[in-house]
Computed example of a mutant assay.
Amino acid sequence: MVTSFPQLRGEAANHPLARVLRTVSADSCPGRLNFHCHTTCSDGSLHPRELARQAAAIGLEHFAVTDHHSMAACPQVQAALNELASEGVTVPTLWSGVEISCLLEGCLVHVLALGFNPDHPALAIYLRGEAVVGPALRSEAVVAAIRAAGGLALLAHPARYRLSHQRLLTAAAAQGFDGAEAWYDYAMQGCWAPTPLVCEAIAGALAERGLLQSCGTDTHGLELRGR
């Protein structure tokens, strides 16, 4: 089964995925951890089963599929992992994940929801295949829904928006985000690697605020090691 946490109790620090995210560093992705990738169930090119095969072949320990507003790939990925495990292949732990659009400081951003209960009604409106409109698009509403479903809310690729990552991280911290994607390939290279300086700055800002750091390839192509 997909690893999730049905009800967040106390602070985010008690979430089981938080223990994994505390180990994130510049060299965690793409070989050990990957909490941002896409399949054909949204705007990716990898079939869910192929993504699962590549995740196992790379040797990932933990990962999440974060299609936009969709959990359709998750059962297919888990089924493929189960088949590989039955053949004696070491497979990674799959955490529930989805990428949700929202407004933060009036800027359209993406939030990675991780480790939540996919069946919780609070998230249903965000799992219909497209971004919502109205009050539910506000970041406060999105974070509240993720929390209600027992998940963690992390700001995706903070340096890809029209507002500075400094401003967005300050706002995210004030609104109860649990962290952000610190390590990201803004240069979009063929083989994923974190972008110097900007990633270090984001990681430092998160550490100062006591927030969690994530990492991910944001794969949309055919190779899980690249974007």
Rank of each mutant, 00 (worst) to 15 (best):
V133R: 14
F63A: 03
L46W: 02
F116C: 01
G204F: 12
E61W: 01
L108A: 13
L108S: 15
C191N: 10
M71L: 12
L152A: 03
M188P: 00
L163K: 01
P121G: 11
D185Q: 07
G179W: 00
Q76N: 06
A174D: 12
V24M: 05
C29L: 06
C107I: 11
E208M: 09
I202Q: 06
G210A: 14
L21M: 14
R225E: 04
R160K: 10
H47K: 08
C37G: 05
T90P: 03
A173D: 08
S4L: 13
L112W: 13
Q54A: 02
G115N: 09
A173E: 07
G88C: 12
Q175R: 09
M71D: 13
L222A: 11
E130R: 14
T23P: 07
A131M: 11
V77Q: 11
H47G: 08
A18H: 13
I100T: 03
D218K: 06
I100Q: 00
E105M: 10
A57D: 15
D119H: 13
I202A: 02
E140P: 07
H165F: 15
A180G: 02
F35R: 00
T170R: 08
C37S: 12
A173K: 03
A141R: 15
V24S: 07
L94D: 04
E50T: 13
G44F: 12
L33A: 03
M1F: 04
G226K: 09
N117Q: 10
L33Y: 03
C29H: 01
S28Y: 06
E105A: 15
E223K: 04
A56Q: 05
T219G: 09
Q76W: 09
G134C: 10
L84F: 09
A13L: 14
A72D: 15
P92L: 06
P6C: 12
P121R: 08
Y126T: 04
R147T: 14
D119G: 09
A207L: 15
F177S: 00
A149D: 00
S42G: 02
Y161L: 03
N117E: 14
T90Y: 02
S164V: 04
S28F: 05
D43C: 13
E50Y: 03
M188Q: 09
T40Q: 03
A180T: 03
D178G: 01
T90E: 14
L114R: 02
D218L: 04
G44E: 04
L197W: 08
L94P: 01
L206H: 07
A180Y: 01
L112P: 01
A203M: 09
E61K: 11
Q175F: 06
V133Q: 13
P158T: 04
L84K: 11
V2T: 12
C199I: 06
S42R: 01
A171R: 05
A203Q: 10
A153M: 02
S28L: 04
Q213A: 10
S42P: 01
E99K: 11
L108Y: 05
V111L: 13
C29D: 02
E87S: 10
G204I: 03
T40D: 04
R167Y: 00
G129T: 07
A136H: 10
W95V: 08
Q54T: 00
Q78H: 09
E140G: 14
C29R: 01
Q175K: 15
G44P: 12
P16M: 10
A171F: 04
G31W: 05
V65T: 08
Q189N: 15
H120R: 07
H110K: 05
V65P: 01
D43N: 15
L51D: 00
